[in-house]
Design a protein around this nucleic acid. Structure first.
Lengths: 161, 161
DNA sequence: GTAAATTAGTTTGAATACAAACAATTGTCG
DNA sequence: CGACAATTGTTTGTATTCAAACTAATTTAC
């Protein structure tokens, strides 16, 4: 750690302040929704980097864990993803023995998804990280407003899909 | 429009009600943030389908319009995207004569981005659609809570990046 | 004044997404 | 029963993203 490095780091603080004009975007809910979601997603991705699972798969795993025997279509709706996006994700999860994919006798088109013990263990680990991440979000949103904030987000998701 | 079709449509109403258990996800801000953003994005995408521009490019165009001579790096930060994502997007916009990309004399590494008259016209059209879309969001969020809601989203984006 | 560090933008690679087209299965209705 | 419609999941194509490695230009440090 030389003096030049220390000096360089000291000057590193300059750029963040950006007096950028947002214009009409400043009042658009959709714009800020996108920025906040992207920031939250990236922060969580950095947190679980190195674990055996990427953040996009976390919600899928958690939803299967909460709803054993769920179908892929229902899972897609619950996680806000197209069913065609789930096919490769579930292939991967099944290939790593994190989930079971059983054919349903009454309707042989669909699968009944459930977690394997290995999947449960990984989910438990991910939940620990997810809780820590969300505590950070709680602090930013404020616990007093959290419930109202989530209700508003849910109204948006329900009304627009 | 046969009787069978009418009947089929009548029965189409069943699936939407989904008593799915969210478990721990129910309390995670990040999860609902993702669902709301995805729903908003898709609704806007459907609205501007057929126009000459996809929704991901709209914010880029609007930010350039508000901040002439902006650099690609600053644009990336403002729009929440990595600079490497902007290269192909700006290539496309420049190729369609919607933006100018001029080299800066004082710093020949960077570009000064600005809209062409054609870009301004397209932006104006997109803004009309964006305002209509956001009025829909306003109705869902409630005008009384809109400002507070946006402030919260901005706090998340600022704190986590 | 030159070497080292930093910055702007591009390239490449891997991951992920939606949408439309498709096969297999089930349901509906005459 | 038998044709048509609807649904489940997969395949294919295109678009988009980030991250890391890279080039070129600039700034900093000595």
């Amino acid at each position: 750690m030389t003096a030049s490095l220390a000096k360089a780091r000291r000057h590193k603080r300059a750029p963040p302040a950006e007096p950028l004009r947002l214009g009409p975007l400043a009042d658009f809910i959709g714009f800020h929704l996108r920025l906040a979601q992207e920031a939250s997603f990236q922060a969580f991705a950095r947190r679980v980097r190195g674990l055996d699972l990427r953040p996009g798969r976390f919600a899928v795993l958690a939803l299967i864990g909460e709803n054993p025997r769920i179908s892929q279509t229902a899972l897609g709706r619950a996680s806000g993803r197209d069913k065609s996006s789930l096919t490769p994700a579930l292939d991967d999860l099944a290939g790593r023995a994190l989930i079971h994919r059983r054919r349903v006798a009454r309707d042989r088109r669909s699968y009944a998804l459930s977690l394997t013990p290995k999947g449960e263990r990984l989910l438990a680990m991910l939940l620990t990280h997810a809780r820590a991440h969300d505590r950070r979000l709680d602090a930013i949103v404020g616990l007093r407003h959290k419930a109202e904030f989530i209700r508003t987000l849910r109204r948006i998701a329900m009304a627009l899909v």
